[in-house]
Amino acid sequence: MTLEAEHMEISLNAGDLDVASLVKEIRDEVSKKRQEGVYTDARIGRAERHNLMYMADSEELLRFYLNCLRDGVHVDINDYQIEDRRTGWKGKGLVKMKTVIWKLLKFYTFRMWHQQNQINGLMVTAIESSFQQYEKKIASLEERLAKLEGDSAK
């Protein structure tokens, strides 16, 4: 690499590495994997909550975030394998106690979570629909603009 600062010129980079190309290469790989569903994971959607403010102008991130949201939108209210790290009679007892607590909890909160899931689902659908509608509108406006510019050039 040749660095051209105000008062000097220095040759660096023994490895002839071009980080901009490397970043592009990794981004292409990520893009491919994303299409294959490698990153369809609620944990990723959760991780992006602080990033949206920086990348709000990125259409790509918004689309990706909507996919994450779709994947993680429903609160999981299904039964799951209840375990305890302790072994022996103490562990077995604790598993039984936790199972009873879970059943009670599920019984009393099922209706609330069910309604919440319906709301979450409707909201994501509404956001996705708006996004798609605006995308279509912008595409059609761009097409009209290009046509008008073409006509005026003639």
Partner: peptide, 14 residues
């Protein structure tokens, strides 16, 4: 970029 010594990410997958 100047140093050729680091990478930069936009979002989690990167």
């Amino acid at each position: 970029e100047r140093a050729e010594a680091g990478l930069w990410f936009r979002y989690y997958p990167e």
